[in-house]
Amino acid sequence: MQSYLGTAAAALAAAAVALLLVAVVHRTSRRLGRRSLLLAELTEHAHRPIQVAATVLAVQFAVRFTTLYAVGSPWRQAVLHVLVLAVITASAWLLAALLVAVEDTALARFRVDVPNNRHARRVRTQVVLLRRLTIAVIVVLAVGVMLMTFPAVRGVGAGVLTSAGVVGVVAALAAQSLLGNVFAGLQLAFSDAVRLDDVVVVEGEWGRIEELTLSYVVVQIWDDRRLILPTSYFTSTPFQNWTRTEAAVLGTAEFDLDWAVPVQAMREELRRLCEGTELWDGRVCVLQVTDATGGLIKLRALVSAADAGSLFDLRCLVREHLVAWVRDQRPIALPRTRAEVGAVSGPLPWQAVQPRRPPRRPAGTEVPDDARVFGGSDDGEARSEAFVGRDDHADARR
């Protein structure tokens, strides 16, 4: 009993000394961390794992050296074995914490709260996936090392190795879906097809990539629902990525109106609306007649915004404003079905309506060419060259 009490006292003393040393090192590193981001991250993430690892290691040494008189006793072997397992677990935890601290330090250099954050989102996606992969590898290795501390497991090791080929084939067939998703996640991380915070359209839903793991992707839909898809979906199914190259995007609002609609007046009204709202980024504001069949004409308003959220609100604003403008200012352009009865030689009522004059612009003001998507402005010229080619575009101009 006296020897047991001595061992327990030695273990408690060793644990207290270890905790005291860790506390001193933690305070020192916190002071030095004010000048170093890496040291600050290490201090924050690795403090608790270092406490546990140092305490368990100190207790193991205390028990080992104070029980030399009982070498070979079952209780000593059991206690030391438990402590070895605890050391392996704490070491794996500490290694994972150190990797997380290094990765957070690397991520701090790339800000995603800036307008042009495509490269930062790409790096963040790759680092997050690598973090998940490395932590999974550390856990698997730690579990393997812990199992190898049991003599029974080491004894069957030779038999396991001889049948590793058959087991590997069976495991690959059983887990082919899981492995496919893991490889698909790595492919997404390094192919730059999709990144965190990308705006995508999948399964007819518009949303943002909220989480990207090795096995599944979480898409936050615009109404705060979550769409969870396997990573293999994004490598085998076409989807829309609105922010792969930049956040600025184009959007449309379409109207079916009567042939009597004054297109130029509606075009100028669209321009006035865009110039008066902060949702428009100043790049594209175009109104075009895209179809004229079935007794109606289809007008398409094409506008641009700095990001997908602003574009959604801008498209709704354009629809609401132009619908009200047609209803209040140009009711003659509302969709209608005509039926002519009687003599056709007389003037029709809708022909007798006098058109209103468009509002005058100040003298010297140049009317923007809002009737062309691929031309008429610097942005339109660039878009035309992207689809036609710089040389072919110049030849077509000639």
Rank of each mutant, 00 (worst) to 15 (best):
R398T: 07
R327H: 15
L279P: 00
V341F: 14
A339V: 06
H81S: 14
L20A: 12
R336L: 09
T55C: 14
A40V: 04
N241G: 13
D313G: 12
V284T: 02
V286S: 04
A9R: 07
A142G: 08
V112G: 12
V137I: 09
Y216M: 15
L186Q: 00
V388S: 10
Q176F: 10
A260P: 01
L94N: 04
A292V: 09
G309M: 08
Y4H: 10
M148R: 11
M148L: 11
I135V: 11
V137G: 07
A339I: 05
D395L: 13
A8L: 11
S236V: 13
A96D: 02
A46N: 00
P74D: 15
S377V: 05
A54G: 08
R330M: 14
R271I: 15
R357H: 10
S163F: 07
P349D: 05
N116Y: 06
Q240E: 10
L130Q: 02
A339N: 04
A54E: 02
T290G: 13
T213R: 09
V137C: 08
V160A: 15
G207Q: 01
R195Q: 07
A382P: 02
T231N: 03
A58R: 00
L39R: 03
V24N: 03
D378F: 06
V82Q: 07
V218C: 09
L178K: 06
G375Q: 04
P355L: 08
L270Y: 02
T365V: 15
L287S: 04
L322N: 01
L80D: 02
F110E: 02
A9H: 06
V22S: 08
A253W: 01
C316L: 15
V52H: 02
T105R: 06
A386V: 07
Q187G: 10
L39E: 03
R327L: 14
V114S: 05
L334Q: 04
T67K: 11
V127W: 03
A158E: 02
I297P: 02
A175N: 12
E366R: 14
V199Y: 07
T89G: 15
P151W: 08
A10H: 01
Q126V: 12
E41Y: 09
V326P: 00
S236I: 11
D223R: 13
G165A: 10
V284Y: 02
S91I: 12
N117R: 12
G157H: 09
L227K: 05
L317Y: 01
A40Y: 03
G375V: 05
Q187D: 06
L196M: 06
